[in-house]
Design a protein around this nucleic acid. Structure first.
Lengths: 245, 245
DNA sequence: TGGCAAATAATGTATAGACAAATATTCGAT
DNA sequence: ATCGAATATTTGTCTATACATTATTTGCCA
């Protein structure tokens, strides 16, 4: 319980804001009052309030004062799946089935391919993720050989390329686009579902600094998979896979 | 150009880390060296590095030093949208069309309803979100009147209940379940899509402390909507809606 | 009254110094 | 050589003070 002073001030106000005791728009005491109330220096108060600004809980304006911010976006933590690990965690047998592996030039008609490849080549790796021998997700991946030249020699027959990349290439930035799509005829055949069935589609792009590393599109059977995102103190299990019916 | 010193130090290292010049695990100079290099006081260096710690870009250990953090693989930030704000941000006209509003006892057969309501009543609010008069999402919401007694008197004819709740009730914990579903016959009719079409489904539960506030299920037209999740420093726009074709 | 300029109140940044806390390293005793 | 204690290094916190910045308010003047 011997938290530092600035942390105590910070969490005090965090708690009061989250509890609704301080409503959006309410004004907080000025730093002078707070340093008297807590019996500390102004720099200490300032550090606490700066942290709340960084967290988006309050706004501060010179001469005007400090105010509780209006909540805008709900930023939540999304647990991005490592499919293999997740399936095994459920006690199922995970299998990866390679479909396509080809080293090629980017298709000039596709902007995202030329953007990713730069002046180099692309490795395309398609495959199927299975849980207990039942298709779970179809993966289509492009890797920039500029960013990851080693991958041309890697053995990707048993290891899914996502796991291989995680081991070998650190990334600094990533973006996921999550949508619902109807299974195309080919996707449906590979996933053993009817054409047009609802599937969860995750498209992820990964960078190191400005340089693109890999783009991947994963199509999950809609009846077998969902993603979990949460916000708060309790940290439940990560993303979750539901066994195919 | 006249950025404050601590901000200059912070962004310097942010840039070098994101560019890959400083790789995960690399050690940064100690504060003494940095204050000499930048010609400033140690508190200023410390403030800059503290900000990078808060951003998750570096780790610091006493006596050991400061190191570039390994990117957390599993968790990304998901920006959960306020639908109305998002649609307006795209320059479209947002409309909310109420469908059902009923104050009732929880259905004893549904565990999630009794759990949410406690010993109080439930307000059920169903409605349709439209962008430029085209259906975008169908929303089914339950609100605990124990947690939010004021909502019984609120005028929810024009304001979607999600926006109203955002303004009036802060929450401390939330969980999202994201999946792909096929539109039921009724959903398809309201969304003006074929029965069975792929839709993105977001089911969110929200708490303040231990007390449940609201459960909501939003079904988005799959051809019109996706979610964005992000990891990294550059913070682009939040979740995004695509105009219906 | 209206508009512009000065005063003022609040936050923002920075300093030098001090001590606390944690942990890697060194050194000593077994 | 091994374990444990002492030491040194590095970050963490806090203070008291100073001046800069900015937006609000006041007040003067037309």
């Amino acid at each position: 319980m011997k938290k530092p002073m600035h942390e105590r001030i910070r969490s005090d106000f965090e708690a009061r804001i989250l509890a609704g005791e301080l409503a959006p728009g309410d004004r907080l005491p000025i730093e002078q009052e707070l340093m008297q109330h807590y019996g500390c220096a102004r720099m200490t108060v300032n550090k606490a309030l700066s942290a709340l600004v960084a967290a988006g809980l309050i706004d501060r304006r010179k001469k005007a004062g400090t105010f509780v911010a209006r909540p805008r976006v709900h930023s939540m933590v999304l647990d991005v799946p490592d499919i293999a690990a997740q399936v095994r965690e459920r006690g199922q047998v995970y299998t990866y089935m390679p479909i396509v592996r080809s080293l090629r030039r980017p298709d000039a008609a596709r902007i995202e391919e030329t953007t990713l490849a730069g002046n180099g080549a692309l490795l395309q790796v398609d495959g199927l993720h299975l849980a207990d021998a039942v298709p779970l997700a179809l993966e289509h991946r492009l890797v920039s050989t500029n960013a990851v030249p080693e991958i041309a020699d890697a053995d990707l027959r048993d290891v899914p390329p996502g796991s291989w990349l995680l081991q070998h290439v650190p990334w600094t930035e990533a973006e996921n686009r999550i949508s619902a799509v109807a299974a195309s005829e080919e996707e449906a055949r590979l996933l053993a579902i009817p054409t047009g069935a609802a599937c969860l589609c995750v498209e992820r792009r990964t960078w190191r600094g400005r340089e693109g590393i890999t783009n991947v599109r994963q199509v999950f059977r809609g009846d077998s998979y969902f993603l979990l995102a949460h916000f708060g103190s309790t940290t439940p299990s990560g993303g979750a896979a539901v066994p195919p019916a």
